[in-house]
Write a protein that binds this DNA or RNA. Structure first.
Lengths: 117, 117
DNA sequence: GCTATATTTAACCATATGGTTAAATATATG
DNA sequence: CATATATTTAACCATATGGTTAAATATAGC
């Protein structure tokens, strides 16, 4: 497994923290697209979109290929993997509902209730 | 499954985009802790930590329980679930290596190579 | 009640973020 | 070559972020 630094994780999570950027990635999941296509669904200027693309690019989630006067954009999903791995660790907490001391005490209470019956 | 809004996803991903905050969550995964304990590993003032706790709290990832003059902090992992779900969709891309047109062409080339043999 | 401890709030600061419009760049096309 | 198209860069702006120090608040303990 590829080792990702803290700062790379920062960049990926930051890239994902904006609805527009997540929308762009969702669009790219259906296939490569040029900048104007990506911009179309958003009520926003082209320069604003271009900046979002730069954020995604710096996080390693997107590549821009120059092709004549257009620029074709490509999704690079690999950097999402360490982000998924990071979150995965916490899955045990929300799945087992053993989130917290409070949950622990709740469970303990349940056990006591069972014993009382 | 709980439905999470775009803005909640924004907040969760933003909360995760900082090493200090991820460190705090990692610490809390080992059990509840008071603010001073959480602050200890970081070369940072208490007010700075308090702000990070507020960011985590607003993302729904942490709760502060008042207990006398101390405040016990608790990890709430549930809001990580929609974030994990969001990323999960992209797993197919990095796992199948069918990331992109480039990968597609690469695969096509491989097929052609096979045919040549 | 006074003092020490735990934590937050307020005020401030530098830099980052997310948007804008106008200008620059590069390429395609009549 | 002149013009239209695609995109980025530059300059600007308001607000957010992540940190600081000093003051405020709340509770514990002598």
């Amino acid at each position: 497994m590829v080792k990702y630094s803290d700062s790379e994780l920062n960049k990926v999570f930051h890239a994902l923290s904006d609805s527009t950027r997540r929308g762009i990635l969702a669009r790219l999941a259906q296939g490569d697209a040029v900048v104007t296509e990506l911009a179309e669904p958003f009520d926003m200027s082209l320069p604003a979109i271009s900046k979002h693309l730069t954020v995604l690019e710096k996080a390693g989630l997107l590549r821009r290929h120059k092709d004549g006067r257009i620029r074709r954009c490509q999704l690079i999903a690999e950097p999402l993997q360490p982000a998924a791995d990071w979150i995965k660790f916490y899955r045990q907490f929300w799945e087992t509902k053993l989130d917290s001391l409070a949950a622990y005490l709740e469970k303990k209470q349940q056990n006591e209730d069972v014993l009382k019956k």
